[in-house]
Amino acid sequence: MSKNSSLLGFALAGMAAGAAAWYLFGTKDGRKNLSKAIDGINELSSTLKEKASEGLECASEFAEKAKDKAKRKFEEGKSKFSDISDQVSDVADEAKKKGNRLKDDAEDLSRRAARGAEDLATDAKSKFKDNL
């Protein structure tokens, strides 16, 4: 009985496919409907292609904007780093100049102290000789 049911199912499916094929290919209305279906499929395909193209264009524009923004941010960071580097260099130069001035002042004070000590020693020597 199961075999007969399967055979009957295949026969009915074959008849339905045949009737659909005869309707689509054998009648004027069927050919019109088939033509409309093909036109609809072609239009859908064309629309899908257009939308895909628009999507690619939009993604490309987005990527370009992101690239430009990243480049701009990099240049801003580079400029800030350069400015800070220049400021650090200026501070270092100023500290070096100040260090050199302090060194020169210390040398001058030590020379004065040495001269003062010599003068005191000479005065003391002279007073010692005078008292003898």
Rank of each mutant, 00 (worst) to 15 (best):
F74I: 09
F81K: 07
T47F: 05
G30V: 01
D93I: 15
Q87V: 08
I41C: 05
K49L: 04
R31M: 03
E94D: 15
Y23P: 00
M15L: 11
S46D: 00
S126P: 04
E50W: 11
G18H: 08
E43N: 13
V88I: 07
G99D: 06
N131P: 06
S85I: 02
A70E: 14
W22Q: 00
A66K: 06
N4R: 13
A21T: 03
N42H: 02
D86R: 15
A124N: 04
R72D: 11
K97G: 00
D68S: 01
A37S: 15
A95V: 06
G14I: 04
N131L: 05
I38A: 14
A59M: 10
D39W: 10
L24C: 03
T122M: 04
K36D: 12
W22N: 01
L56C: 04
D68L: 05
T122G: 06
E57K: 03
A114V: 04
K103F: 07
A95R: 13
S35V: 11
K51T: 04
N33L: 14
D105I: 05
L7K: 11
L7W: 13
V91G: 13
E107G: 15
A63G: 07
K78C: 03
K125T: 08
E76V: 07
R115I: 09
N131R: 02
E75P: 09
K125H: 14
E61W: 09
K69H: 10
K67V: 04
D68V: 02
E43G: 11
E50N: 12
A121V: 01
I38G: 10
G77P: 09
L7E: 13
A117S: 13
K3Y: 14
K28L: 01
L56K: 09
K51H: 03
E43H: 11
K97C: 05
E64I: 06
K97F: 07
A19V: 01
K69N: 11
W22A: 01
F74V: 15
D123G: 03
A13T: 02
R31F: 05
G40D: 09
S2A: 11
G116H: 11
R115N: 13
A124R: 09
G9H: 07
R72Y: 00
A113E: 15
S46R: 02
D29V: 14
G30A: 06
G26L: 12
